[in-house]
């Protein structure tokens, strides 16, 4: 069997494929975080919790209302986005203008609250959520057997990222958003309702987390801690990509997924740390992140 640096080709390419799958999750989550941070200047610690809420939402729709995966993929992000909007209006709004640490603490509290309530309601062991019938089974790619569902995850994540990018870069709403990010005071002076844009942006960021949650439900068992495991990694990715940089977060998400996969091939013990090693390196060499801009 052909080898690459002493590793069987099969294992090498297999891990790379998995890196791309994981990277797409990272990308969608990091994208939401970046959008929120860009406009609200809030480090949304509740992002992982909303990811978890998304997965549980899909589970509850199926269990209690008999609504399957595909409708859930639309319904749940909208509903979770509404929860996010509610959180913004009732809680986050009071903290604008204060030290960012308050926003971090508040969202961390929200995360603990959400995780705690789902743990009480559903216990801590993972709940199975079945893969939609059309995506069941796997495809033999000769170098590995890849479950069809994971291919769909990669495609869906890329679509979500692309759609978000198009909205922000190519639509009128997006131009308002970009303007409000740069100069909120001036944008407001032009008669654009900046507070409304802020609310909607938080809702949209949360909805993105929920999309990732629904996508993850059939892969990971749905459990109250599924978000907190992921959110730390995603934070590191946002920092690497450059805080607030939308393009940077997506690229860094995919790249870090790949690096993680590669590390698993060569020295799997380090795979949990490699992302943070990258973060430390990037912070040393480019403190603003790979695609971030220095604050003026």
């Amino acid at each position: 069997m052909p080898e690459i640096f002493g590793i069987p080709l099969q294992a090498f390419t297999g891990q790379l494929m998995l890196g791309i799958v994981n990277g797409s999750f990272y990308a969608v989550l990091a994208l939401g975080l970046a959008v929120i941070f860009g406009l609200l200047k809030i480090v949304n610690f509740a992002h992982g919790a909303f990811f978890m809420v998304g997965a549980f939402g899909a589970l509850m729709l199926e269990r209690y209302l008999g609504i399957g995966y595909w409708p859930a993929l639309l319904i749940i992000p909208v509903l979770t986005g509404c929860i996010g909007i509610l959180v913004e209006i009732t809680l986050l709004r009071r903290l604008y203008g204060l030290d960012p640490i308050y926003g971090l603490l508040l969202t961390f509290g929200v995360a603990l609250l959400l995780e705690g309530s789902f743990r009480v309601g559903f216990g801590s062991s993972g709940q199975p959520y079945s893969t939609p019938p059309i995506l069941r089974g796997s495809t033999d790619l000769s170098f590995m057997v890849l479950p069809n569902y994971r291919m769909w995850v990669v495609a869906a994540s890329l679509i979500a990222c692309l759609a978000t990018w198009l909205v922000i870069e190519k639509t009128k709403l997006g131009s308002y958003l970009r303007a409000a990010t740069e100069r909120p005071d001036l944008t407001q002076a032009f008669g654009i309702k900046v507070p409304l844009i802020i609310t909607l942006t938080y809702g949209a960021g949360v909805a993105l987390a929920a999309v990732a949650g629904v996508l993850a439900a059939p892969i990971l068992h749905v459990s109250s801690s599924m978000g907190s495991n992921l959110v730390i990694i995603v934070f590191a990715i946002v920092v690497i990509g450059g805080l607030g940089s939308i393009f940077g977060s997506v690229v860094a998400g995919l790249a870090l997924g790949l690096i993680e996969g590669l590390t698993k091939v060569y020295y799997s013990e380090a795979s949990a740390t490699v992302i943070f090693l990258c973060m430390a390196l990037v912070l040393l060499l480019r403190p603003a992140g790979l695609f971030g801009r220095e604050e003026r």
Partner: peptide, 30 residues
């Protein structure tokens, strides 16, 4: 751990006849 895919690939690459799962609860089911 929730995602075992990369460990499963290692197990496949090992070509061992038996893959022993020395964990329990949600670790083992995942």
């Amino acid at each position: 751990t929730t995602d075992y895919s990369s460990y499963i690939l290692q197990a496949q690459a090992s070509k061992a006849k038996i893959v022993g799962i020395a964990s329990t609860g949600s670790d083992a089911t995942n």
